[in-house]
Design a protein around this nucleic acid. Structure first.
Length: 107
DNA sequence: TCCGTGACGCGAT
DNA sequence: CATCGCGCCACGG
């Protein structure tokens, strides 16, 4: 039976799982996460997922180039948390050369 | 179903 | 470096 099984792509789940793979002391970007999750054009959704889903290492997700996308105090907290786990910054951006996490095909 | 809304990204100015 | 504009796309009202 050609079951029109919707099997929702569950973008939120895919994205959440990817984010959970970022190890302590390393970071990634919205775009890279969307891509690794199999939804290369859904960078904007990564942010939404981070707000909805609790328990994710949200502080390890940065904007392109290692920039913090949050504003105000949240931005300060994110930077504080990252530096606390060893991530170093160069001006306003994290040193991606050394701290960006590169996802692999099959975890 | 249509419409506004983003924790975005990137090129142009 | 700071801004702007536009494409992108799942969600919720």
């Amino acid at each position: 039976m050609t079951l029109p099984r919707k099997a929702k792509p569950l973008l939120a789940t895919a994205i959440s799982n990817i984010i959970r793979r970022i190890p302590r002391g390393r970071v990634s970007t919205y775009g890279a996460i969307a891509k690794a999750a199999g939804h290369p054009r859904c960078a904007r959704h990564v942010g939404r997922v981070l707000r909805q889903v609790q328990g994710l290492p949200w502080q390890r997700v940065l904007g392109s180039g290692g920039r913090i996308s949050l504003r105000g105090e949240s931005a300060l907290e994110q930077r504080f948390l990252l530096e606390a786990e060893g991530v170093r910054f160069k001006g306003k951006r994290a040193d991606m050369k050394r701290f960006e996490h590169h996802f692999r095909r099959a975890s």
